[in-house]
Amino acid sequence: MTDYELRKAAKNNKLPPLICLYGEEAFLLEECLTCLLDETLDKSSRDFNLLVINGRDVDPASLMDTAKTFPVFVQKRMIIVKQAQDLLAHQLDNLISYISDPVPECCMIFCANKVDKRKKFYQQFKKNGVLVEFKSLYANKIPPFVCERARSANKQFSEDGLALFCRRVGNTLGEIVTELNKLFNYCGDNHFIDVPDVAAVVSDTRIDSVFDLTDAIGAKDLSRALILLERLQDDGEAPLKILAMITRHYRQLWKTSALLEQNVGKQQIASTVKINPYFLTEIIRQTKKISKLSYPQSFELFIKLDLALKSTGAQPRALLQKLAQDLICLN
C-alpha cells in the first residue's frame, strides 16, 4: 500500500488494524501520520481513545490490553508507537500474539526510521497489516514536489522562479514546506510566483556567495572573490565550513565536467552528481570557466588549507585569501 492509498483508506474509514510507517523521510512520514490521526479521531475524542508511546517504553501486555479496550463513543481507538526501531527483541516477540489476531476496533500504528523485515514480527505483521515506506527524495524529485505543493495552494512558479527556489532551499522537505508557506503568504492572491517573489522571501546567502565566488575565480576577478570570502566570514560562517562548501562545489563541477565529456545527458548528470536539475544549468555554465586540468591541483590546495586551518595559530582570513589567489592562478 502506498502513502496515497493509506490516506484514501483513512478518509473512507477503512484503515487496517495494523500499520507500519517507516523510512528516512521523517517529514512525509509525520505528515501521513497526522492525516491518519485527523481522519480517524477528532480532538475531542482523543483523551479516551488515543495512546502515543515511544518504542523503548512499551510494555507489551499493557499495550495489548489497551488495544483490546473498546473505544469510547467512536468507531476506532488509535495507538501510535513512535521510534518503533527501539523495540527490543523480547518486546516484539511478546506482541506477535496480538498482531496475529488484531482487534478491528483499534488501529495500531508503528513509526520507525527503519525496520528489519526478516524478523518474525514483521513477517507476521505483513499478513494482517500494511507497511508503508517513506524514502528520501532524490534531488531530481524536489522540483515536482515543489510544483505539486504550489498547485495545491493554487500557485504556479515561473521556470526561473522555480530554479531559484530549488537552488536556495536544499533537499530538506520540512524546510522546503516552511519556505513555501512563507512564499505563499507573501504572494497573497497573486497566483504566479516569479524570481522577485522568491528573492524577497527565500534567502540563502551562503549558497549564492559560493556560486558567486566560483564565478569570480573563473573570471579571474580576485577583488570580487576576496569581497565574497569576507562576506561569508562576516555572516558568521566558520572557515572550515566555508572550505567544505567550496570543496563540495568544486567536486560537483569536476564530476559534471567529466560527465559532459562523455556526452552524458543532463538528467543522468543531475542524478549522478546528486544535484537539483534546476541547479545543473548554472553548474554547467561554471564548468566552462574552469580548466579541467586545474581540478586535481585545486583539491591539493583544499587538503593543504584544511590542515592549515586545523593547526595552532592559523590565520583563517589570510589563508582563505591565499586560497582564492591560488585558485585564480590555476585557471
Rank of each mutant, 00 (worst) to 15 (best):
L253P: 07
L330T: 01
N331M: 04
Y295G: 05
A216P: 00
F27L: 02
L33V: 04
L87V: 07
Q83S: 12
F145Q: 00
A324G: 06
V264E: 07
R224V: 08
D3R: 13
F165S: 00
S271D: 12
L240S: 14
I176K: 02
S291W: 13
T205R: 11
K82R: 13
L87N: 02
P196W: 05
N140M: 10
K155Q: 05
F279W: 08
P143F: 03
H249E: 11
C106R: 07
V52D: 08
G218Y: 04
S298P: 06
T69I: 10
K182C: 06
K255V: 07
Y4G: 10
K114A: 05
V169D: 01
L164T: 00
F165W: 04
C20Q: 02
T2L: 07
G218K: 00
G170F: 06
L222C: 09
E237I: 04
E5Q: 13
I283H: 06
V198Y: 06
T256P: 01
L6R: 04
L293S: 14
N154G: 11
K288L: 09
Q321S: 15
R149F: 13
L18K: 08
K126Y: 06
F27M: 01
L309G: 05
W254S: 11
S136H: 08
R168V: 02
Y122M: 13
C147E: 13
Y278D: 00
V81F: 02
E31W: 06
L222A: 11
L307N: 10
S136F: 03
A318L: 15
L21R: 00
R56F: 06
V72T: 13
A219Q: 10
P143R: 07
K117R: 14
L51K: 09
T40P: 00
C166A: 04
F134C: 00
L319G: 04
K120C: 08
T247I: 08
V81M: 03
V202T: 02
V132A: 00
I79D: 03
C35M: 12
P102D: 09
K310Y: 12
